[in-house]
Design a protein around this nucleic acid. Structure first.
Lengths: 234, 234, 234, 234
DNA sequence: CATGAATGAGTATTCATTCAT
DNA sequence: CATGAATGAATACTCATTCAT
């Protein structure tokens, strides 16, 4: 379960990139729809129309498939995430936080299957890679949020006595829930994040970010409202 | 044989309460450890040292066991949760929010298996009862938080232009993550909530609540700090 | 399977006759509906609202129940069957054969559950008692039919060169199928025996008997038609 | 996974014909010996010495196996049955009826397991395919018999006032019982059809056919005995 | 290197039978 | 003597994994 197999998978890499793509696509879909244990190798090869043995030749076993899959997915994700991260270095904190929510939501919408797998992994103890990936991903996110906060403090936009880790924790919690609510009306519970109405969603995301921001700002800045509108919504 | 089996399970109720307790304990543990699908009836009866048939005589089938389990758990939970809810009606909002976090955390610590099952249900699409329970539980929580906020607004402790739903959403997100972080260092990521140090945990919880509160308060009240200490921690 | 247990069942006999009756009724129904193996002791006790252990105390086991059941059923049946047998000793053969069909059909209609069990027993190799009961019942029937035929021969109503066993075989085959067709449209296949129209059924039964009779009669009697009408039917 | 699985079973068809044969043989035997519900997939794979999963890979499930089995059996049967049907179109009715009995009996002897399964299906209400197959098979048989009779009527060999359906019903009943009697002394009850003595069996079959024929013929033909011998037997 | 038939330990579930109360 | 909880071998069925072709 936590055995070796960091194998470089020479077999799969030699495949036609087109086929590689299809394999990864369908596998990703299966894991997103059913989670790790409930995902069925039989179903994957059926979707793909390839031999069952091939998948095992490519990846050794189910876990190998998942590891490879997720590793590849992470690579594809890194660039856009880094882009979000670096794009707005100079702007004031509340705007940056808004952007984090809005772009984070856009990202989750753009990669719904990866997002779903990530959510399942976070809640399910027996996912392979859970430990490694969770600590890495979350670590990066928290570090980023902390730096965001610390930057704000350096510029006096955030009160100095706020522990950046506390702020980062809240940001991450709110963002995670907001993104989850997006594709599950049950989790959204009427808040509007799972609505099909894009402007409404944007407004709700902004409201969340702004309300958090307010909690972080020094009293002096409280009136200087960075948010033009209030956040009442239909 | 072809009924939907909402039956009142007369068999199990007649068992010696001691045995009932053991059965519920071990089953709860199995579901908490493995989730619904991965939980094994075989393993449960092995843990219990009883015959396979017995469990089916008690609950009809796996889903019946789970439903019974969860129904019982909910009943046991209701009272303490209501107690938290009603205890502090007269106090100022920030104190009430703190209490929500502290008591919520105490509750999750006291019922770690129920909490785990709940988290799995929220993330896993194919849990039985998921829809019903999630909408009920979350609905109640959000309603409570909203009323908390609206009460604060009525007393001028919270700015009037804050949408109570936004506030409730943030509270719920933060609380949920805080409670999850408690029993999983991975989710905690060094924040201190999964630490064995109870005062530290309490301080961290308070810090989360206070930082949220601050975001909700009107500017006038920002200085009247309800939290004596800052929230820096080792 | 062919073990002892001819036991006199002292326990069951001491029960209140009313309860005895219910037990036999419901058991008979279960075996008629599901056959021997598919019949469920669980279901029987559920129908009866008695303890599972009781049934085993009464009859030892499932097979014991069935044996007792069937024995009792046979006893109840004997009298009416004998009545049919003896009622018409003086009449001409064709009339007697008609009566056999009509009264046989009436009997099967009056005791549908016993008839069904009998049919299942005849086709299913692993019914308990199959051997004993089948050879007894069929033996009696064939003997009766043979005597019927021999009586007819003695009176010159049936040609002398007809082997009575052949005739008896045909009668039994036709009767058995006619009775079976009565409660199964599939077996009837549009012939009218499973119809709700009683006169039609009677006509069809008579037609069957008469056509057989004709095959048995000596040429001289062929014109003296005992059947007023032909047998065309809607 | 949720389809009704009318699937063409690509797996089994690719097996070595020798193995295919063994699988079908043993399965057929199991169903013939025990009927549908009492037949055990475990037992079948044990007989075959193959893994349990294999059978399910071939046929999907127990019912799929049975359906395939029966479909194959029907195909193998069709040709010889049609041969019987068409062989003797020009001959007089009594000879044709004899041939039906003799060849029918030969057929049942050649395919005893199929015959047994058929009998069980007819008596057991909950066989898969029962309705479809019974109505089809019996329909075809009755139609054939009716045409046989109508042909006889057209040529004046059978009296015009005989309802062909009545005649067909009797033929089918007698034939069915005769075939059943062949492999069960119990059903035969000393008539000679289950005897090992082939000429005796043939004589008894002929006697049954002839006696029926006689019942169908017009008076004028009664003396013109198509059967050289009477039908007395040892 | 692709194939896909073979595997068998695993799953949930049933049910006649026993026996302590 | 009635009770009904306990039993466990039986059932049909699944699925990741292997390996001969």
């Amino acid at each position: 379960m936590d055995a070796p197999r960091p194998a470089p998978l020479p077999v799969f890499d030699k495949l036609a990139p087109l086929k590689q793509g299809r394999v990864l696509e369908e596998s990703l879909a299966e894991f997103a729809e059913h989670g790790y244990h409930q995902a069925s190798v039989n179903r994957i090869v059926a979707r793909l129309g390839i031999a069952k043995g091939s998948l095992f030749q490519y990846f050794g076993n189910k876990e190998g498939l998942f590891r490879h899959l997720f590793a590849r997915a992470l690579e594809e994700i890194k660039a856009p995430l880094k882009a979000i991260r670096d794009a707005d270095a100079g702007e004031p904190f509340p705007l940056r936080l808004r952007r984090v929510f809005v772009e984070g939501a856009a990202f989750a919408r753009a990669h719904p299957r990866i997002w779903r797998i990530y959510r399942r992994m976070a809640a399910q103890e027996d996912f392979p890679l859970r430990e490694a990936l969770l600590s890495q991903l979350r670590g990066e996110a928290l570090t980023y949020f902390r730096e965001l906060v610390e930057g704000g403090q350096a510029r006096g936009e955030i009160r100095a006595d706020l522990d950046p880790r506390t702020a980062a924790f809240l940001i991450e919690a709110a963002l995670d829930r907001a993104l989850s609510a997006q594709d599950s009306p049950l989790l959204d519970a009427g808040h509007g994040l799972s609505s099909a109405d894009q402007p409404l969603r944007a407004a709700r995301l902004a409201a969340l970010a702004d309300t958090l921001s307010r909690g972080f700002c020094p009293p002096a800045l409280q009136n200087a409202d960075t948010t033009q509108a209030g956040d009442s919504h239909a």
